[in-house]
Simulated scan of single mutants.
Amino acid sequence: MKILVAAFDPFGGEKINPALEAVKKLEDTIAGAEIVKLEIPTVFQKSGEVLRKKALEVKPDMILCVGQAGGRFALTPERVAINQDDARIKDNEGNQPIDVPIKEDGAPAYFATLPIKAMAAKIKEAGVPSAVSNSAGTFVCNHIMYQALYLSAKELNNIPAGFIHVPYIPEQVVDKPEKPAMSLDDIAKGLTAALEAMVEYAGKEDLKLVGGTTH
């Protein structure tokens, strides 16, 4: 089994992206699966092009994209990606699409096809905070999750794909005392647990656990 794990470079004025740094720390084999690591640019459209090129080259069995969500306290597997770019800030090449469809021929939304509840449960078993998230936002994280699922549906025989957000690391919140942070080692530990769950539940139904929110 081969899993493509893609993570964004720094953006929004940050000098580091914990998503990328944590992915770099992952073992090359997890639960018997080969882990193929990919750095992707925090750029609308280009991120999808980079992911597509690598995926068609390596032909993975699953895709997991990873991004930073400053302000969250836990690792959060995402449930859904919407077919809409609505950027609050510019991406790393100055693009700021407002109310623009990601794919004109794509579905209004795609649900993650990874076992997101099993992933969250496994992360918590590893001693790392985790919860299912029901919004990946409308920036490049939602964009790449949508691109991954679109790619899976159109060109990769519906292989499981999805996205997980990670928090800031401590050095990023020195001047943001109101923001939570998590150590890079714990983020990498959580991602490892998520990947273990992906392997364990490959071809199986996800866990039926409470994962909803009231708002």
Rank of each mutant, 00 (worst) to 15 (best):
3 I>V: 15
3 I>Y: 06
4 L>T: 10
6 A>K: 03
6 A>V: 08
9 D>P: 01
10 P>C: 01
10 P>A: 00
11 F>H: 02
11 F>A: 01
12 G>M: 00
13 G>W: 03
13 G>M: 02
14 E>T: 08
15 K>R: 15
17 N>T: 08
17 N>K: 07
19 A>S: 14
20 L>F: 15
21 E>D: 13
25 K>C: 07
25 K>R: 13
26 L>Q: 04
26 L>H: 08
27 E>V: 10
27 E>H: 14
28 D>A: 12
28 D>R: 13
30 I>E: 04
31 A>P: 12
31 A>N: 13
32 G>L: 07
32 G>D: 00
32 G>I: 09
33 A>H: 11
33 A>F: 12
34 E>H: 13
34 E>Y: 10
35 I>D: 05
38 L>S: 01
38 L>W: 09
38 L>E: 03
41 P>I: 06
41 P>M: 03
41 P>A: 05
42 T>R: 01
42 T>A: 14
43 V>Q: 10
43 V>A: 11
44 F>N: 05
45 Q>R: 15
47 S>K: 02
47 S>I: 04
47 S>Q: 08
48 G>K: 02
48 G>F: 00
48 G>D: 00
50 V>A: 03
50 V>N: 05
50 V>Q: 05
52 R>A: 10
52 R>E: 10
53 K>W: 04
53 K>G: 01
53 K>E: 10
54 K>Q: 12
54 K>N: 05
54 K>V: 00
54 K>T: 07
58 V>Q: 03
60 P>L: 12
60 P>I: 11
60 P>A: 14
61 D>H: 15
62 M>H: 07
62 M>N: 03
64 L>S: 07
67 G>H: 06
68 Q>L: 15
68 Q>Y: 10
68 Q>K: 14
68 Q>E: 15
68 Q>T: 06
69 A>Q: 09
69 A>Y: 10
70 G>I: 04
70 G>N: 02
